[in-house]
Design a protein around this nucleic acid. Structure first.
Lengths: 229, 229
DNA sequence: TTTGTCCTACATCTTTGGATTGATAATTTG
DNA sequence: CAAATTATCAATCCAAAGATGTAGGACAAA
């Protein structure tokens, strides 16, 4: 079935010219893919991506001059719908995480069998995301670790829990950038009352200025607020 | 080989007592697992987790009274090393994402074949993370989408780019909760100079108070700073 | 050399923020 | 019921923040 479809166009970016050639030959053997261009330079790669608008890019992310992750980011920013598969020599959890975070649709190790690369391309071309099982585990480890750390910060004896409901309301308005007069209006109370609440908030959060209270709130779980300008 | 190892102890939490019974029978048939307890209540489940310290918990996350995600979070907080697999009737991307984020080691749909549940338990027991392929894709979609949105916010014509280097320094200290006098000391300049810089910052960020400038900075890419208390 | 930007600094004045103390009424809790 | 907590308001006082205008020196670009 596959052979009746139009060939998918592939761009290769890899600073190691030996590897580049190898992959190029490998793909050329596949009836369903066509290598439209190949380069050893990340910057050049970005230009070629604009010019040829390939379906898929295989991008080496361990390049010296300009790093591959950055190149992925720039190409993603163009929003050309090009699917990028990251190639790397390392199964580094952080690298995998970052690549996926910025929009890579797959991550394949250079040491893996060539069949796996082709399989990854098939999957990604079909709109899926492909990570080898071993890398998926590493990805999740990193993912969970990074969130666990965030949580620890916010669950360490949170002073916010001592606030009364009204104080929370006042603090929420503070985190939106309101001054005391505005808060008084919004809560239908006098501004001297606002001052009283704010003073109590300071006591409980162990700070002595508005800005510090707001920073404490933001860093300790109060949902991030957009400025109400 | 498996039959020589000690049986792994499993706790079941599912408010649907029919499903609970079914899963219990299923697992009891497996020579390598032992159901140590089962309950239809999330709160009870947390207590049972403390009491029995099972190796694995199968947790239904679509429960009415107390929701399963919250229960997972509370059990994770105990840090008992219990591996939790989320069970759900829905392949909702957001649910999957949240479950994995708070530390679930697997996510299995109730509609899936029983063999898959056992396989998931085997994988998770072995220290891996198990998501069915279809759910992994959904997870990644959601993952990438959530990061893409974050980026958009921070790349929208950022007023921070108009700041001079010195103004950036001042703003950074502001985001750490310093007042003007402190900033003056830290930068070895007079506090009237600090005021000048701050006024210029206000102009450029189109705000008129310290707190608003700090909020703008935090919401627009200035790296989050811990309070220097 | 001139123009412009940046960093520095000061004076003056008004507004806002923050500390402290004290007080009343309503609500909750033991 | 008594005690504690919460929400409200006020007066006073001092410190900090913010607005505005002015200005000199360093430095880079035109």
């Amino acid at each position: 079935m596959r052979e009746f479809k139009r060939k998918l166009r592939v761009l290769l970016i890899d600073d190691n010219s030996d590897h580049l050639r190898g992959v190029k030959e490998l793909i050329t053997l596949e009836s369903s893919y066509d290598v439209v261009s190949a380069t050893t330079s990340a910057n050049m790669g970005i230009n070629l991506a604009k010019k040829y608008r390939p379906d898929i890019i295989l991008m080496d992310i361990n390049m010296p001059e300009k790093d591959g992750l950055q190149a992925i980011q720039e190409i993603e920013k163009l929003e050309l719908g090009i699917k990028i598969i990251a190639l790397s020599a390392y199964d580094d959890a952080d690298l995998i995480f970052r690549a996926m975070k910025i929009g890579a649709k797959g991550y394949v190790l250079k040491t893996m069998a060539s069949a796996q690369l082709i399989y990854a391309m098939d999957e990604v071309a079909a709109g899926k995301i492909y990570l080898p099982t071993a890398l998926t585990s590493r990805f999740f480890e990193f993912f969970q670790k990074s969130f666990k750390e965030e949580e620890k910060v916010s669950s360490e004896e949170n002073l916010l829990s001592y606030l009364t409901p009204r104080e929370e309301e006042v603090l929420e308005l503070l985190t939106q950038g309101s001054n005391y007069k505005d808060i008084a209006k919004k809560l239908f109370i006098s501004d001297t009352t606002v001052k009283t609440h704010v003073n109590n908030i300071f006591q409980k959060l162990q700070v002595n200025e508005k800005t510090q209270a707001v920073l404490y709130a933001i860093n300790n779980g109060f949902k991030k607020q957009r400025l109400a300008v």
